[in-house]
Computed example of a mutant assay.
Amino acid sequence: MTRGACVRRHSATLILGLLALHAPRSTLHAQRTHLLIVTGLGGAPQYTEQFRNWGLALADVARKRYAMPDSEVVYLAEEGAKDPRISGASTKANVEATLARFAKRAAAGDQVVIVLIGHGSGAGEDSKISLPGPDLSARDFAHDLAPFTAQQVALVDLTSASGDMLPVLSAANRIVITATKSSFERNESVFARYFIAALTGDGADVDKDGRVSLLEAYRYAVTETKRYYDDQGRLQTEHAQLDDDGDKKGTAEPDVRVAANGDGSLARRVFLGGGGGVYASAVGANDPKLAALYKERFALEGRIDELKKRKASLSADAYDDALENLLVELAMKAKAIRAMEGRS
């Protein structure tokens, strides 16, 4: 090995050590996910039932597949707690009280996911979801989400006319997904149906790791929504957007391969069951070795993301060496997981 290569290898080792020391808490400790599902006014029996069923399906998969405790899954519906899986009525007061409780108990590095299902209206800061009683606007949500300064927050607005929520709520360490690109796309959201299907089914799990990230769910819903309109021979009247880099600009088709720190970089690491603690315990409940492998894999993914953020401050050789080491280690970890699960 040449002196230059030795120096680069030594630099890479130092960088890896620094990454381990300064990795975010979410990669070193088990994350918890706090999930709030809100279904608003249906306006007609068929919509009320549809919204309720979507909410129940999402709550069920969070509790059963991702082993989220009941205390961290709150589902508020138009008709209140007619079903034991529903926590109460989806009034503005109940939504804001739930977010306030989450803010008090969420630890640094935890994930807070809010899913809004229903009809939307308004524009700009007055963009809102229709609820029993007073509605909740983008301005209200901006106030309610302000306390979450040390958590990863995802607000998924699956309502019609939801696009104007995005620039109002965009912020650092926050994911905002809207079913439309503006307040002018006011028809019933087809995207909502497919986004819920992505999180509750298996079709969106592109990397076949047994979990669906918000980015995978988004991409699946975008693809299926386009397919729906093409099959119907209709002009597409809704165009979903995703923002998670805090620039207040949504992206229709995020591609993290093009921009390492662009839209999609955070959404690909957020799951209903958390980034590595709760989910790994669930999938490996009968095999502690498998659970440990998953935790190590999630930690490696976090270290790679942190390295990419530091790329501009590193020499090309040091960055390449460090990235190569991490990618090799990640590939070996993934291979070990597949072997233990009996997958090729």
Rank of each mutant, 00 (worst) to 15 (best):
T178I: 10
Q151K: 04
A291R: 02
D140C: 10
R343I: 09
R297L: 05
F102Y: 15
T39N: 14
D230I: 04
V153S: 02
R268L: 05
V153Y: 08
S137M: 06
G120L: 15
V74K: 13
G302V: 01
R234S: 10
R211Y: 01
D263C: 08
K181Q: 15
R268N: 03
D144S: 15
V222L: 10
D321Q: 11
L266P: 06
T180K: 00
E78S: 01
G203T: 08
E49L: 15
A336Y: 02
A217N: 05
G201Y: 11
A334Y: 06
L300R: 07
G203V: 07
D110W: 13
L14T: 13
T48N: 04
D140Y: 09
D157L: 09
V7D: 07
G109L: 15
F51D: 10
A322Q: 05
A146G: 00
E296R: 06
A291S: 09
R3T: 10
G42K: 03
L36H: 04
K248D: 04
K335N: 13
Q151C: 13
H29R: 10
T33A: 05
A312Y: 07
V74Q: 11
A57T: 08
N325S: 12
G43F: 02
V206F: 10
G118T: 08
I86W: 09
R52P: 00
S137N: 08
G203L: 14
E341R: 15
G55T: 08
A77Q: 05
M68F: 11
H119S: 12
A339D: 10
L169V: 12
G122F: 05
T2D: 12
R25L: 15
G302F: 01
A138P: 01
G276Y: 03
K226R: 13
E238P: 06
D157E: 13
N187T: 15
A106G: 09
D164R: 11
A138R: 11
S265G: 03
G277K: 09
N94H: 09
N173A: 12
G274R: 04
F102D: 13
T98A: 03
A316P: 03
D245E: 02
Y47G: 00
Y220T: 00
S344L: 15
E78H: 05
A67E: 03
A89D: 06
T98H: 00
G40E: 07
V256A: 07
E253N: 10
E301R: 09
S137Q: 13
Y75K: 08
K333P: 05
M340V: 09
T13S: 11
D321W: 11
H29S: 03
M68Q: 09
A108Q: 15
K248L: 00
Y228F: 10
E306M: 09
T180I: 00
L19R: 11
A336I: 00
A192C: 01
S127K: 14
D243M: 10
D209K: 04
D244V: 02
A267L: 07
